[in-house]
C-alpha cells in the first residue's frame, strides 16, 4: 500500500461520483453522486493523514468533518426532495428550474 494507491482510489471514487452528479436527472441519484465524491474525499484525507501527518490529530478532525457533511447532505437533500415533490410534483433536476428564471 502507498499514498499514491489510496490517492488513485480516492480520485476514482470522486470521478465516478462527479459523473453521476453531473449526468443524472433524478435528484436522489444526484445525491448518490455527491455521496461518492465525499467518500473519495474521506479516503484521500485519511490516507494523507496516515502517510504524511500521522502525529497531527487535525487530519482525523477533517475526516470527521467530511463524514458529518455526508450525513447533513443526505438529510437535507431528502427533505428538499420531499418539499419539492409536494410543491411541484417533480423529482428531477430538469423540472426544478425555478431559480433559473
Amino acid at each position: 500500500m502507498s499514498l499514491e494507491a489510496f490517492a488513485v482510489l480516492a480520485a476514482a471514487l470522486f470521478g465516478v461520483g462527479l459523473h453521476g452528479a453531473l449526468g443524472q436527472r433524478s435528484v436522489v441519484m444526484l445525491m448518490m453522486g455527491l455521496e461518492l465524491m465525499l467518500g473519495g474525499v474521506v479516503v484521500g484525507a485519511a490516507a494523507v493523514r496516515h502517510y504524511l501527518t500521522p502525529d497531527v490529530a487535525e487530519g482525523q478532525v477533517l475526516v470527521l468533518l467530511v463524514v458529518t457533511a455526508m450525513a447533513v447532505e443526505m438529510a437535507v437533500g431528502f427533505a428538499v426532495v420531499t418539499a419539492l415533490f409536494r410543491a411541484r410534483d417533480v423529482d428531477t433536476t430538469d423540472l426544478a428550474a425555478e431559480l433559473r428564471r
Partner: peptide, 19 residues
Amino acid sequence: MVHNPRLALAVAGTVFAAL
C-alpha cells in the same frame, strides 16, 4: 435518467485523470 451524458463523462474522466 441522464442528461448530457457525454459531457458528464468527459468532465468526470478529465477530473479523474488530472487527480
